[in-house]
Design a protein around this nucleic acid. Structure first.
Length: 840
RNA sequence: GCGAGAAUGGCGGAAUUGGUAGACGCGCUGGAUUUAGGAUCCAGUGGGGUAACCCGUGGGGGUUCAAGUCCCCCUUCUCGCACCA
């Protein structure tokens, strides 16, 4: 018995699990529950590489162990299958997106099923399935009815070549990051969600979640709560006034000018004739920059701006200060207008220096404010009734003054913006809304859901610039429930929509009467463990939380947060080969290059190539396909290696030879179980039993902590120990096979039968650690002299301090140190070491 | 620029949270075996030295009987955020 034949046993057990519905979700509601969820994938055309299943394998180990520990486990997989890439792939191939999507899902599912993941496939769902998006539309109606959806004219990133609006993160330097097509700013009527209304709740809810601190922090920063004051400046010689927001109202006496965003509605009316041309030119320039470009500049970027010719009045002292426009003031934040205090704000300071505006110190304690803004604290000066106060006290006082005098009030601002929810694309959920001829928005009645996507093959916008759904003229024509003619909404929802609530649908995916079953929701929610990549740290997780909180407020779900514990698995990297040192040239497959001297060259033409460890990606020619690994080493070895590489949250570099290593371990385990020295009864062997129970403990802990790498190494140590033993007890094997089974389920099902069992190992009871087996009789104690290791002594684990010292001092290697000096101090750490302090 | 995290053999990583640094695995070296090409098994493997010993956790200081671990300074890298008033 050498190596086991994974090509035979893995398909056999996968078939067994499928035939027996082994992983159908437990229906016993008296058991404790465990809902473990993977962030479901977008089924792209390129299939999976070995980086994708890392998280899935981790959750599978947890799910399998939890079943053995007596939990009802919800373990499911689905597809985030709406989205632009499928639409584009469809255009390229001349096929319908539904066909492309179906094919891609087939590829993904095939690849995943080869890994032996214990999903309840009876609960599989796809967001592009009308049975699913019917309920996405239903939830949209709930939000709409709650007054959280509204239409607004907003400046968007319009890409004429694609005929669609792009998200801010898809645009860089005025171009679509994927294709380089130019993107322009255009004001369009869009559907928005009032996520800002939930800013405070989204912030507060974070406190009680078991999430990585970094992710919580990112969400906090994204929401960006800041406390300050909002108050009015009036425009001199005019009735007009504008509101400003500031977090530093205490510096109001240092205001030497004010700035409006170029898009501010007041700009036209306040600009003087003399400045009109310059202002118009500046506004045009600003309008052509995307939000991203405007905000992605460093704080010390050169400042630009334009004087309006108008002046405004500082409410606190009546000073008349010039009113400018500048693109460093954002229309979309706060009130789109600020007062400037160049002495104590770096941006204002840079602007003042550029345009030679005065700088007046109002907080003392810094250096010369003419040279640099002073941000620190200190007594206020030149500030009338604020003089002498520190920042906090001055803030309180000025806010009270503003309120008393009717100029404004203390407020809270959030950086979070409302959520732009509509897209001009085909492959997404249609909105369940229609518009009558006189412009009234009417929701589609729930009983008429789903609003199905019309069959189209042309996904370009119409000639007059309406979204692709407007091409389905018959589809778009409809009537309101009370019989008036109406047109359907032709925008579609963004990809986030389907992923916002899929964890709820998994609870009762085949329910035709409701989005989810209330009792079942009560039992399963919240998700106990949610595993996925950090790329979703903000948007997906924030949007989901928002929807969930709305549903909670509507009494539709039982928890205020959807995901109790979040874990981010690290990315898998791999060596890439490129003929340009900056990685921008041609990539080569690993088999196209060879090592030569210090570097690498292309085999074909001897051209120098540069190596760099990069994220796995098809475009970098550095992906490893899990199918290949399953074929060569087996799914069990692949699963084990994914988790053995290092801590789950860290990135790690892929090496095929590592899979060979975990395979060797499995072969050893198999050999151990089939050795001719295996006996039925107990075997006295303290070393092996200790190793076994250490492994049981470590693996049990790993299920909680998700620290699998060291748990696997502990199992390796057990196998190495047991292979040295004269006799191997089946009792050891019964424990060992059970703790290994979540990692290597195929082989362990096989070995479990070999131990005389007839039922699947999937529900075998989880072994307990026997503390008495961990106790050792003798320990190896380190003996140090002046902190340096000089000897070790073998001694009874129960030896007293005196006995330990005696043994240490009489150790042959130690006596010479004692003879050569004076013993000053003796430190004994029981079970660890002895340190003798000796001076010559 | 700001914030967070990290730096340990040729490589991935361990180290009971102040107590024998380098577990486990990869790779490498030697050996065994082979129906030989990539398999399997056994042994060795931080560096230096014949040795006793010496040196070693990014660099420099410090605390301590004892520092990878705690404190201060510096360097480098990764990840967020990036004119949010």
């Amino acid at each position: 018995m050498e190596r086991y034949d994974h090509r035979t046993i893995e398909p056999r057990w996968q078939k067994f699990w499928a035939d027996n519905d082994t992983f159908a979700t437990d229906t016993d509601r008296s058991k404790p529950k465990y809902y473990v969820l993977d962030m479901f994938p977008y089924p792209s055309g390129s299939g999976l590489h070995v980086g994708h299943p890392k998280g899935y394998v981790a959750t599978d180990v947890v799910a399998r162990a939890k079943r053995m520990q007596g939990f009802s486990v919800l373990r499911v997989m689905g597809w985030d299958s709406f989205g632009l890439p499928s639409e584009r792939q469809a255009v390229r191939e001349g096929k319908h997106p539904s066909e492309i999507t179906e094919r891609n899902i087939g590829t993904f599912k095939g690849q995943l099923s080869g890994l032996g993941l214990s999903y309840d496939w009876g609960r599989e769902l796809a967001t592009s399935d009308e049975k699913y998006y019917r309920w996405t539309q239903w939830i949209f109606l709930k939000l709409y009815e709650a007054g959280l959806a509204y239409q607004a004219d907003v400046p968007v990133n319009w890409c004429p070549a694609l005929g669609t609006v792009l998200a801010n993160e898809e645009v860089k330097d005025g171009k679509y990051v994927e294709t380089g097509d130019p993107v322009e700013r255009r004001s369009m009527k869009q559907w928005m969600f009032k996520i800002t209304k939930y800013a405070e709740q989204l912030l507060d809810g974070l406190d009680d979640l078991d999430w990585p601190e970094g992710v919580k922090q990112m969400q906090r920063e994204w929401i960006g709560r800041s406390e300050g004051a909002q108050f009015a400046f009036s425009v001199a010689d005019s009735d007009a006034s504008f509101e400003v927001f500031t977090t530093r109202p205490d510096t109001l006496f240092g205001c030497t000018y004010a700035v409006l965003a170029p898009e501010h509605p007041l700009v036209d009316s306040v600009t003087t004739d003399a400045q009109r041309e310059a202002v118009a030119a500046y506004r045009t320039r600003a309008a052509n920059m995307s939000d991203r470009d405007r905000t992605s500049q460093a704080i010390d970027a050169p400042k630009t701006g334009c004087f309006t010719g108008a002046y405004c009045i500082n409410p606190v002292n009546g000073d008349k200060v010039p009113l400018w426009i500048a693109d460093y003031v954002l229309a979309s934040y706060g009130t789109g207008a600020v007062f400037a205090c160049p002495s104590h704000d770096e941006r204002d300071h840079a602007f003042a220096k550029t345009f030679d505006l005065p700088i007046v110190e109002v907080v003392s304690g810094g250096d010369d404010v003419q040279a640099a803004a002073y941000i620190g604290d200190g007594p206020h000066v030149n500030s009338g009734f604020l003089d002498g106060l520190d920042i906090d006290a001055a803030k309180t006082k000025i806010i009270a003054w503003l309120e008393e005098n009717g100029h404004g009030k203390g407020t809270i601002q959030y950086r979070l913006r409302d959520w732009l929810f509509s897209r001009q694309r085909y492959w997404g959920e249609p909105f369940p809304l229609m518009e009558t001829e006189d412009g009234e928005i009417v929701p589609v009645p729930e009983s008429d859901l789903p609003v199905k996507l019309p069959e189209l093959m042309d996904f370009q916008p119409t000639a007059d610039g309406r979204p692709p759904l407007a091409r389905a003229e018959e589809w778009a024509k409809t009537t309101t429930p009370d019989g008036r003619p109406a047109m359907r909404e032709t925008n579609t929802m963004p990809q986030w929509a389907g992923s916002c609530w899929y964890y709820l649908r998994f609870i009762s995916p085949n329910n035709e009467e409701a989005a989810w079953d209330t009792e079942e929701e009560n039992y399963w929610m919240p998700v106990d463990l949610y595993v996925g990549g950090t790329e979703h740290a903000v948007l997906h997780l924030l949007y989901s939380r928002f929807w969930h909180k709305v549903l909670y407020d509507l009494g539709l779900v039982s928890t205020s947060e959807p995901f109790q514990r979040l874990f981010n698995q690290g990315m898998i990297h791999s060596m890439s080969y490129n003929d340009s040192p900056d990685g921008r040239g041609k990539f080569y497959y690993p088999n196209e290059v060879e090592e030569k001297g210090e570097g690498w060259v292309a085999k074909a033409d001897g051209r120098e190539v540069f190596t760099k460890v990069m994220k796995m990606s098809k475009s970098r020619y550095n992906v490893t396909n899990p199918d290949d690994m399953c074929e060569r080493f087996g799914a069990d070895a692949l699963r084990l290696y994914e988790l053995f590489m290092g801590p789950l949250e860290d990135g790690a570099m892929w090496e095929d030879s590592g899979v060979a290593g975990t395979r060797r371990f499995l072969d050893k385990a198999n050999r151990l179980a089939h050795g001719d020295n295996v006996v039925d009864g107990p075997v006295e062997n303290k070393d092996v039993e200790r190793a076994l129970h250490l492994a049981i403990g470590k693996v049990s802990d790993a299920i909680q902590s998700l620290r699998f790498n060291t748990a696997i190494s502990e199992m390796m140590i057990f196998v190495n120990e047991a292979l040295k033993a004269d006799k191997v007890s089946k009792l050891w094997l019964r424990d060992f096979v059970r703790i290994l089974s979540p990692f290597a389920p195929h082989l362990c099902e096989e070995l479990w039968r070999g131990l005389g069992e007839t039922e699947t190992i999937a529900f075998a009871a989880w072994p307990e650690v026997d503390e008495s087996k961990l106790v050792v009789d003798t320990i190896t104690l380190a003996v140090q002299v002046n902190g340096k290791m000089r000897a070790t002594v073998e001694i009874s684990a129960t030896a007293s301090k005196d006995e330990i010292l005696e043994a240490a001092k009489t150790s042959p290697k130690i006596t010479k140190y004692l003879e050569g000096g004076t013993l000053r101090r003796e430190i004994v750490v029981p079970g660890r070491l002895v340190n003798l302090v000796i001076t010559p």
